[in-house]
């Protein structure tokens, strides 16, 4: 699918992935020729069993994992070919939220948010914690948005899981990203908090008019919050369509077996 979009100039699509291969061990590819196009908005859920390459796919997009071959075009620019300063500039445009939050535990909430701006300031300013006043204002505004207004000076390790993930999302938004990635953002959270986090991700995607791509295990959450669902199996795209088109037959083909379906 998306062959028409692939051949067109990519001015419209926020992200185009072409023939993406990744093999950690030569000859054993984890991703086997992924072709995907993401428009300017909307929340996409990527589902699939553990070990099918969801996380690798997401990490290839911001080059936390080096793709073996293929193209990843962020607003028309091939990220795979970038290096050094240009790669950092591209990474600034991609926000990322992690399963284990990945906050710097011993820093305060405000400092954690400001780390989202480290790509934009020089090393000396970073060293002296000299952030532009606009960044600090932006950080306070985001803390209001995620409901942590009074937590600016608390250490990150004093927060609960849900609060930490809100800080994680706020940190990603500090980058003013053109694309938001989330790698199983709710897998360590309780069901209620999971819903709140998904709501926040969807809202922020809409508010900032950017696409959001979320890896997730919870099929029900995916159905509820995603505009589009991508099902992965054995390093390939097994399903790609509207969340409403995801029926039990599709789930069987994505996850295999059926005893787990009720």
């Amino acid at each position: 699918m998306n062959t028409a979009a692939d051949t067109q100039p990519t001015t419209q699509a926020a992200l185009v992935i072409r023939k993406l291969f990744k093999a950690y061990v030569a000859g054993q590819p984890v991703l086997k020729g992924i072709d995907l196009t993401f428009g300017g908005t909307g929340l996409t859920a990527i589902i699939g069993a553990s070990g099918t390459g969801k996380s690798t796919l997401l990490r290839c997009i911001n080059r936390l994992v080096e793709p073996t071959s293929g193209e990843i075009l962020l607003e028309g620019e091939d990220i795979v070919r970038l290096g050094g300063e240009q790669l950092r500039a591209a990474r600034r445009r991609i926000g990322m939220v992690f399963q284990e939050y990945n906050l710097v535990e011993r820093l305060t909430v405000m400092e954690n948010l400001l780390t989202g701006r480290l790509g934009t300031i020089g090393p000396l300013d970073a060293w002296l914690r000299r952030f532009p006043p606009a960044d600090i204002e932006h950080a306070f505004a985001l803390l209001d948005t995620v409901g942590l207004a009074n937590f600016a000076n608390q250490r990150a390790d004093s927060l609960s899981g849900g609060q930490r993930q809100r800080v994680g999302i706020a940190r990603a938004l500090m980058q003013e990203p053109r694309l938001l990635l989330a790698d199983e953002p709710t897998s360590s959270l309780d069901p209620k908090t999971s819903v709140e986090i998904m709501e926040l991700l969807r809202e922020q995607g809409r508010a900032n008019n950017i696409p959001v791509i979320v890896n997730m295990h919870d099929v029900e959450l995916a159905r509820r919050f995603a505009d589009r669902v991508i099902g992965m199996r054995n390093g390939e795209v097994a399903f790609d369509g509207a969340a409403t088109a995801l029926d039990d037959g599709m789930l069987r083909s994505i996850y295999g077996g059926e005893g787990w379906l009720q």
Partner: peptide, 14 residues
């Protein structure tokens, strides 16, 4: 984890 997160934000080595 934190190293990965800050790398993803475009932070330099320093």
């Amino acid at each position: 984890g934190p190293v990965e997160a800050l790398t993803a934000a475009g932070a330099g080595t320093g």
